[in-house]
Amino acid sequence: SELMNSSKLIRMLEEDGWRLVRVTGSAHHFKHPKKPGLVTVPHPKKDLPIGTVKSIQKSAGL
C-alpha cells in the first residue's frame, strides 16, 4: 500500500492556503481562511497510510 510523508501532505495543505493554528502532541491542526472546518494531520510521520491521506485531503477539499 502507498504511504505518504506527513511533511509532504502539510506542504500540499499550505499551498492550498491552510495555516497551522494549533499543535496538540503530534496532532497539527490547520484552518483555512475561506474553507470550513479544521483539518488535523499527525506529524511528524514518515508513513501515513494512503487512506488517512485521502481522508485528510477530502476534509481539506483538495
Rank of each mutant, 00 (worst) to 15 (best):
K45V: 15
V39Y: 01
T40Q: 10
G51P: 06
K54F: 05
G17E: 05
G17T: 01
R19K: 14
S1C: 11
M12C: 06
E14P: 00
E14C: 07
I56G: 01
K46V: 10
K54I: 15
D47Q: 15
T24Y: 11
H43M: 03
H43A: 03
K58I: 14
V41K: 01
A27H: 15
V21Y: 13
E2V: 08
K34P: 00
K34T: 14
K45L: 07
G37R: 06
A27M: 12
L48A: 02
K54E: 14
R11I: 12
T40A: 11
T52D: 06
M4R: 12
F30W: 02
D16H: 07
V21N: 06
P33T: 07
K8R: 13
M4P: 05
E14M: 11
K46A: 14
L3R: 13
V39K: 01
M4G: 08
E14G: 06
P49K: 06
M12I: 14
G51H: 12
L13D: 00
K46Q: 14
S1F: 06
K31C: 10
L62R: 02
G37S: 05
V41I: 06
L20A: 08
E2H: 11
A60W: 01
T52P: 02
S59R: 13
L38E: 14
I56N: 01
K31Y: 08
G37W: 04
V23Q: 11
L48H: 01
H43G: 04
N5P: 14
G17I: 00
G51L: 09
R19C: 09
R19Y: 15
L3T: 15
V39I: 12
P36I: 08
R11S: 13
R22Y: 13
V21H: 10
L13H: 00
P42G: 04
Q57P: 01
P44G: 05
L13E: 00
E2A: 08
N5L: 09
R11E: 12
N5F: 07
S1T: 11
G17A: 03
A60C: 02
S6D: 01
H43C: 03
H43K: 02
L20M: 09
I10A: 02
K34F: 14
H43F: 03
D47F: 14
A60G: 04
A60E: 02
S6A: 05
A60F: 02
G51M: 09
L20P: 06
V41W: 01
K34S: 12
K8H: 14
V41E: 00
V21T: 10
P49V: 04
R11N: 11
E2Y: 08
R11D: 13
S59L: 15
G51V: 10
L20T: 07
K8G: 12
M4D: 05
S59I: 14
M4A: 09
P49D: 15
G61S: 06
S1Y: 04
A60S: 04
L3V: 12
K54R: 14
T52W: 07
V41A: 02
T24S: 11
R22A: 12
G37D: 05
K45T: 07
Q57M: 15
D16T: 04
P36Q: 09
K34W: 13
R22D: 10
G51C: 09
P44D: 03
A27K: 09
E14D: 06
H32M: 01
D47P: 06
Q57E: 08
S26W: 12
G61V: 03
P44H: 04
K45Q: 10
L62S: 03
W18M: 00
H29K: 10
Q57A: 08
P42I: 04
A60D: 01
V41H: 01
N5M: 15
L38C: 09
H29N: 08
W18H: 01
I10Q: 02
K34A: 10
P49G: 09
R11W: 08
E15T: 09
P49R: 06
K45G: 06
V53Q: 05
L38P: 04
D47M: 11
H28A: 15
L3Q: 14
G61C: 05
L38F: 09
F30E: 00
K35E: 01
M12N: 05
F30G: 00
L13P: 00
L48M: 07
L3N: 12
L62C: 05
M4S: 11
S7Y: 15
H32Y: 01
T40C: 09
K35N: 03
S7K: 12
D16W: 03
H43D: 04
L9F: 03
S1A: 10
T52S: 05
R19D: 07
L48R: 01
L48W: 02
D47A: 14
M12A: 08
K54P: 02
E2G: 12
L38V: 14
F30T: 00
H32P: 00
S55M: 11
S26Q: 14
S6N: 02
P42K: 04
D16A: 06
N5V: 10
K8A: 14
V39F: 01
K46L: 10
D47L: 12
H28G: 04
L20E: 05
H29F: 12
S7M: 09
K54D: 10
G37Y: 04
S6Q: 02
I50P: 13
S26P: 08
P33R: 07
S1M: 14
L38G: 06
P36A: 10
G17P: 00
T24Q: 11
K45N: 10
L48Y: 02
M4H: 09
S7E: 13
K35C: 03
V53K: 02
